[in-house]
Amino acid sequence: MLDRVEQIEMAGCSTRPVSLLEAMRERTKALHVTAERTGVVAELLRGRGTRQAYALLLRNLLPVYETLEAELVRHQSSLVLSRIVRPELHRSPAIKADLATLDATGLPLLPEAITYVGAIKKAGSGSGHPLLAHAYTRYLGDLSGGQIIKKILARSLALPPEALSFYEFPEIADIRRFKDAYRDVLELAGAAMADPGAVVEEAATAFKLNITLSEALQAAAGLGA
């Protein structure tokens, strides 16, 4: 007969595995808080940004999204990645439109953005499964916190709607339902992988890259301490 310790260990082995989303949320919980409280993102959330800071943010996010979207499309026939390739989420055309409206020419591309782009290219190599983490971090963030930032920017910087296309998703009729459906396909993608651990760690990497870029943008824009 099994003793109590062995019974507990056996029971633990039989429980359902932690879902990909649960694992990513848990792994990035503290990083998520840090991302909201530091750098240019924190300044924008507090209503202390400037048009130049916003334009600089967009300038440096553009190659990040261009690379992410290109890598996702390249893997669109993948069993794991095919369901998360959703053109209605693509942000690079909207970012270009916002930059044109803001007449943001001559803004620098920071080294931190180049590093971020390199990390996404690396995530897209081989199977490309780590791209799930970048899609999770960027797109669900845009659909959630991004909607709050849009309202703050419109008020604090008096930006017209045509300068805030980045946060608009005209092809998505119901953002809440879309987010739920997108989470579902992320879960299906996670279930199709033998070991989602690398994706979970890539989610932490994605948040760290965002934080580093945000801090660099804050300094480049001359905001904060």
Rank of each mutant, 00 (worst) to 15 (best):
A35G: 08
V5H: 09
V80G: 09
E215F: 02
G106F: 06
K179A: 03
G106N: 03
E26F: 10
G118R: 05
G190R: 14
K151R: 15
T38E: 15
T15N: 07
P160E: 15
G145A: 10
L56M: 08
S127K: 06
M193W: 04
R27Y: 07
L2Q: 10
R59F: 03
K96E: 10
S92V: 01
F166L: 14
R37Q: 13
K121D: 00
V73R: 14
G190V: 11
D98S: 02
A135N: 05
I8W: 10
E202I: 06
E43S: 13
C13F: 10
K150F: 03
G118V: 01
H32Q: 08
R25E: 04
R176N: 14
R177G: 13
L61D: 00
E6M: 09
A113N: 02
A55S: 11
C13M: 12
C13P: 01
Q52I: 00
Y167C: 09
L107R: 02
R183W: 07
Y182I: 00
T34A: 11
R25M: 05
R25Q: 10
A221K: 12
R86G: 10
T205H: 13
A189L: 10
S214K: 01
H90N: 06
Y136I: 00
H134K: 02
A220Q: 11
A94K: 13
K29P: 04
T34H: 10
V199T: 15
R59T: 11
L20N: 06
G118T: 02
A11C: 07
V85L: 13
T28H: 06
V80E: 11
E26S: 12
K29Q: 06
M24S: 01
G145V: 08
H75K: 15
V5A: 14
T105H: 12
V185A: 01
L164A: 08
L58Q: 08
V117Q: 05
E162Q: 14
I84S: 07
G47T: 01
E162L: 06
F207A: 07
V64H: 06
E36S: 04
L223A: 01
D142N: 10
D180Q: 15
L109C: 07
R83E: 11
A119V: 09
R176I: 08
S19F: 02
V199L: 09
R46A: 14
I152D: 04
L81E: 08
M1I: 02
C13N: 09
L79E: 15
A189Y: 12
A189C: 09
L132M: 07
G197W: 08
H129C: 12
A70N: 05
G124N: 04
L217I: 03
D98Y: 05
A55R: 03
K179M: 07
G118A: 00
E71L: 09
V73L: 11
I175D: 06
R91L: 09
L157P: 03
T15I: 06
A55H: 05
K96Q: 07
S78K: 14
A113C: 01
E171G: 04
G197H: 09
D174A: 12
L62F: 03
I8L: 14
G197M: 06
V85K: 14
V185F: 04
A163I: 03
V41D: 01
V185D: 08
G190Y: 09
A206S: 13
G124C: 02
K151A: 13
G146V: 07
A198C: 11
E215Q: 08
L213S: 05
L58S: 02
V41A: 13
T137R: 11
